[in-house]
Amino acid sequence: MLEKKAGKQTSQLQKFPSIIATASIVGPKEGKGPLADYFDQAVDDEFWGEKSWEKAESKFMREVLAKVVSKASMAMDALDFVIAGDLLNQCIAANFGIRESNIPFYGIYGACSTIGEAMQLGAALIEGGFAFNVACLTSSHFCSAEKQFRFPLELGSQRHPTAQWTVTGSGGIILSAEGDGPYITRFTTGKIVDMGIKDQNNMGAAMAPAAADTIYAHFEDTGLSPDYYDMIVTGDLGKVGKRITEDLLSSNGIRISKLLNDCGLMIFDSKQDVHAGGSGCGCAATVFAGFLYDRLKKGKLNRILFVPTGALLSPTSVQQGETIPCIAHAVAIENTKGVNQ
């Protein structure tokens, strides 16, 4: 009997891992956005003193790990695991960013949903008694992502209105078996959903069915009603994807328009020329580590359902004419421990 499992996809926690610290470092464009005041640091040069975009992205991750550990007032050694991921081939930003830390490491890939995946795995490690402190980190970099997934930066081309802008930045959190909250109370692990979208310039439309599927499963599995939460916040659906998610859920009897927000829409101002909104592993991670954690800590929000979304494509799969498989992982974060049945 699995006493911690609810329905098909949801895990109900009983030890309630606490998020004891967060840290976020972002790039220049994000540092001019509406959430600028909530980030720990905004660097003004995308290279950040390094010789390549990839090296700069690793530095983002390395510095965020150092910062989050120092904000938690703990020694690096006190971490039992680091779980990290990014968008680059073979996850080099994470692998190279973490290599000097000397801590047991899980490198994971869930595209832009990676921070959700990391939080779920970290919470499960603590819940299972395998770890006391776990750091979860992700990063993305506009320039390295453009280089890998699209065109060289200096190429004079136009972007489609449904295209999204990869966030430059890294966000990290530390989960601990002890702490005074906010706590991870339950999570719903997403399934891969592919509704046949091939256009990599419309990732919001590709990811929306995955987001809707996970959110629907969360309420189905837990029996909670959507207004249990103060906010349901998706990762990087952007304008188009957010609207589609609302439509898909409302046709299934779940109305969350008033509660639904999207990190991709929160991190940039519509005047910042980012078309449909922000995206990337760093998008949900920095918005959570910067803004949402602050709101939770100050009691402005008490219960949120955080749903990072990811498009699991590669440049090769796109060139071979494949459709885009997508995923979304939901993590419930609350200021009170609550009771899970």
């Binding site: 209105p161 046949g196 439309a205 069915p209 188009v240």
Partner: peptide, 14 residues
């Protein structure tokens, strides 16, 4: 198929 048609309808064009 229906989803693709719906996406075309709600996505802004250039």
């Amino acid at each position: 198929n229906d989803y693709r048609k719906y996406v075309d309808k709600v996505s802004p064009n250039s």
